[in-house]
Simulated assay, not measured.
Amino acid sequence: MEIESAKVDGYLPGLSYLDTARGINPIVQKLPFNLQEKWLSHGAAYKERYDVLFPPFEVLVDFISQQARIMNDPRFNFSTQTDSLYKTDKANWKPSKAREVSVNKINVSSPVHLDTDKDERKAEDAERLCPIHKRPHLLRKCRSFREKPLEERFAFLKEKKNCFKCCLATTHTAKNCRILTKCSECGSEKHISALHPGPAPRAQEAVTLPHHGREEASTPPTEVEAHCTEVCRGDLSNKSCSKISLAKVYPKGQPKKAMKVYVFLDEQSNRSLPRSEFFDAFKENAPASPYTLRTCSGVTEIIGRKASGYQIESVDGKVILSLPSLLECNNIPDNRAEIPTPSAAFHHSHLKPIAPFIPELESDVPIMILLGRDIIRVHKVHNQVNGPHDAPYAQKLDLG
């Protein structure tokens, strides 16, 4: 699917080779034999239906994705119980001159410990989908479940008829649960971490992209991460350039109201954040709501307005993009000395050819907006100039 996305973008024309039999067949040969046979029927039917020489690569991607969904659906996991259901003890049989031997069948069962990879995989297979998000992560690992008050967590388990001890199964109760539990927060063996009293340890949360086990970010309070990303360092004294581009912003379909701004591109932030001046300039008077801003300096509770329905345009007018929902924040980087300039590029021989494409510094234009991962296209690199080791580099993005 990643290769198909790169192929659709059009920046790697050599990937068109995958639309031929020579490109696809080596991939098909790596599939299990039963899937090779299914692909043979699927591809032949596609050829006949659309009257083409060979199915394109996207057809193979859709086929494999569909088969993967089928194979990973726990509802179609048919586990055979032949040994336990259909095997019966044979009637006693003894030869005429043989000694009688009695054998008692002994069943040995040992508790399951969730800290072992093998047993954890078995438990995950049994309860693969989170009942909150209907996504493939365990309830005991669900961030949203952990952030609920303890009373709500127990009420939810009672409603879903989940085990109060392990949170995994609906087939047994806490009284009959044989799973060994241990809380990673307090070390108690009487409950798991998901049922630890008190608030979730935010400092230990890891940010993943784009989902936490395909779990979407929880609704209010919104958590926003903002970090300053330094991308090039040249030989100029005390000169450090960041990903800051000059652009125009205006309400959707109203370019006459455009305002020039510098935008800070930060792929480490999960939200796009404009300053208060942005809301004032466009007379956005939406009611403010609280959210949590988490940076390397700590966690801060902030109240900010929201705005939507805006577009951003590159200074050359070649690219116009719709902005995501914007959240008011004045804690974004505002170091104008880090704005890239043509003179900074001229100090490096490998960057001189691109210097004319960098706008001159406009002293009256503020750094107004931080663009995060919620507008992923502006972070994609279309071209790059590297130069020697330890030398600054330049990247061509949609905004310059």
Rank of each mutant, 00 (worst) to 15 (best):
S5F: 04
L12V: 15
L12S: 11
L15N: 01
L15P: 03
G23P: 10
K30A: 04
F33V: 08
L40Q: 14
A44D: 10
Y46M: 01
E48R: 13
Y50L: 07
L53C: 12
F54W: 13
F57N: 07
I64E: 09
S65K: 15
N72A: 11
P74K: 10
Y86L: 15
K90W: 09
W93S: 11
S96D: 07
S102H: 15
S110N: 14
H113Q: 12
L114R: 12
A126E: 09
R128H: 08
P131F: 06
P131V: 05
R135P: 00
L138V: 00
L139D: 04
R143S: 09
S144P: 00
S144I: 08
R146Q: 08
R146G: 03
N162Q: 04
F164V: 01
K165N: 14
L168A: 14
T171L: 09
T171K: 08
H172M: 13
R178P: 00
L180T: 07
T181F: 02
G187T: 01
G187I: 02
G198H: 07
A200G: 01
P201F: 12
R202G: 00
L209A: 02
H211M: 06
G213D: 11
R214I: 05
E215C: 15
A217Q: 12
P221M: 00
E223T: 07
V224N: 01
C228P: 00
L236Y: 08
S237W: 05
S237E: 06
K239L: 01
S240Q: 09
S242M: 08
S245E: 07
P251C: 03
G253N: 11
P255F: 14
K256G: 08
V261C: 13
Y262C: 01
E267W: 05
L273Q: 12
F279G: 06
F282Y: 09
A286D: 10
C296Y: 12
C296D: 14
E301G: 10
S308Y: 08
Y310F: 15
Y310T: 05
Q311I: 00
I312D: 09
E313D: 09
L327R: 15
N331S: 14
P342D: 04
S343I: 03
F346G: 00
H347R: 13
L351S: 04
K352L: 06
P356L: 09
V365K: 05
P366C: 04
R373C: 04
I376W: 08
H382K: 14
V385A: 11
A391K: 06
Q395W: 03
L399E: 04
